[in-house]
Amino acid sequence: MIRTIAVSKNYELVKDLTIMDLLNGDFPWYWIDFNLPTDEEIEFLRDPFHFHPLAIEDCIHHLQRPKLDYYEDHTFFVTQSLNPQTITREEIDFFLGENYIITFHRQPSTEIEEVWKRFTLSTSLDKWDPSHVLYIILDKMVDNYFPLVYQIEDMLNEIDENSKGRTMEALLEDLFETRHHLLSLRHTITPMRDLVYRILNSGRMTFIQGKKEYFSDIHDHLLKLSEMIEANRELTTDIRDSYISINSHQTNHVMKVLTVITTIFMPLTFIAGVYGMNFQYMPELTWKYGYFATIGLMILVAIGMSIWFKKKGWFK
């Protein structure tokens, strides 16, 4: 579906015009939205707009890395939003010219819907232009990143608080899933940060000269998001290492107890083995108190070794 909207010289909105009406009309600027376009509608990018074939190819082949390309009469942007349900990337492309902005997306975009509605309801159209539309859409996209990062932070806090008593397999499964979400966010936010940085430092994009502080604000938000993502990735590593260390400590403690018990029983086993040999002539074999003396010796050895190990701190 293709939607169109234009601003007249009297700063009035003109809706539902055809593409040829916009190209042949005398409008200060206009906005065309390719919303889930068909193959026939995509052909309008080739004719009558005559956009560069590489830009059209980037629109068709999903999913491209966020970037911007300069062409003779327009600038092409590839940006990425994030689906809040699946935390998957969704591409939104922009063609920005002197008197137009064209948005292209193959899936519904809440950001574009919000800006489109806000634009059509605006009472001060003199403040709007193609670069302002680009700024507001980018700002909405970046603002929608924050709830996803906060959601992952909440998940990490819950994992950290409930880590005790859980099996290592369940904990690691949750941590790896969280790290996967963080990696997906980083693959979106880092290129978007570089894209906005290029916009700010571009000598060819004169349209942002009066809006640098606005795009700089978006860049600051992306820097904050990047730092939050890296901090959360480090937190997942710390939780994993701490849990593994705790489990290793518990395992070592169990092994130490078992080792102490085994060590205590080693001389007892030796004594029992010696007196269990079936020789006819053995000392104390026919002694009336031989059994009781042997048992007493074994008890004394066990008590003595236990006291010695306790003094060494092996029972702590």
Rank of each mutant, 00 (worst) to 15 (best):
I307E: 08
T236H: 04
T236D: 03
F119Y: 12
E40W: 03
G273P: 03
V133M: 14
N144S: 12
P147T: 02
M141L: 10
R118E: 15
T236V: 00
L185F: 06
G296H: 06
Y71Q: 01
I92K: 01
D47Q: 08
S81H: 00
K9P: 00
R166H: 09
D129K: 11
G97Q: 01
K310Q: 11
F292K: 11
F44M: 06
R166M: 14
M255Y: 06
R65P: 02
Y145M: 05
P48V: 00
L13C: 11
S8N: 11
I229F: 03
F51M: 04
F270Q: 09
K15S: 15
S242P: 00
R3A: 11
V274Y: 08
F51P: 00
I101K: 04
K316C: 06
D39G: 04
D47H: 12
L223E: 07
K15N: 14
M277V: 05
E111Y: 01
M192W: 07
I152D: 01
G25M: 02
T206A: 13
T188E: 00
R240K: 13
K311S: 11
F104S: 04
T269G: 05
Y214T: 01
Y214C: 09
Y135A: 03
H50N: 05
E169Q: 13
K67N: 00
S202F: 08
H219L: 11
F176Q: 13
M20D: 15
V78P: 07
L175N: 02
R3Q: 14
I102W: 07
L297P: 04
F34L: 02
M205D: 08
S245M: 09
K117T: 14
P267D: 01
Q209E: 15
P267M: 02
Q85D: 11
F146V: 05
S202Y: 08
D160G: 12
D194K: 11
L200V: 10
G313V: 08
L195D: 09
V254K: 12
D238C: 07
Y30F: 14
N157L: 12
Q280W: 07
L96D: 03
S248W: 01
D21C: 01
E113A: 15
M168N: 14
K117D: 15
N252G: 09
L222H: 04
M266D: 05
K140W: 02
T167N: 14
S8G: 12
T294H: 01
D58E: 10
D73A: 08
I307G: 01
I87R: 05
I32S: 02
V142E: 01
L82F: 02
E158F: 09
D238Y: 08
F292V: 14
E153S: 13
G296N: 08
T120G: 10
F315E: 06
R106G: 12
H253V: 13
I295A: 13
V7G: 06
F104L: 14
E111T: 13
P48Y: 07
F119L: 13
T88M: 05
K224T: 14
N247F: 01
L36D: 10
I19C: 11
I2K: 09
E113N: 15
T120N: 15
M168T: 13
K312D: 01
V7H: 02
E169H: 14
V78G: 02
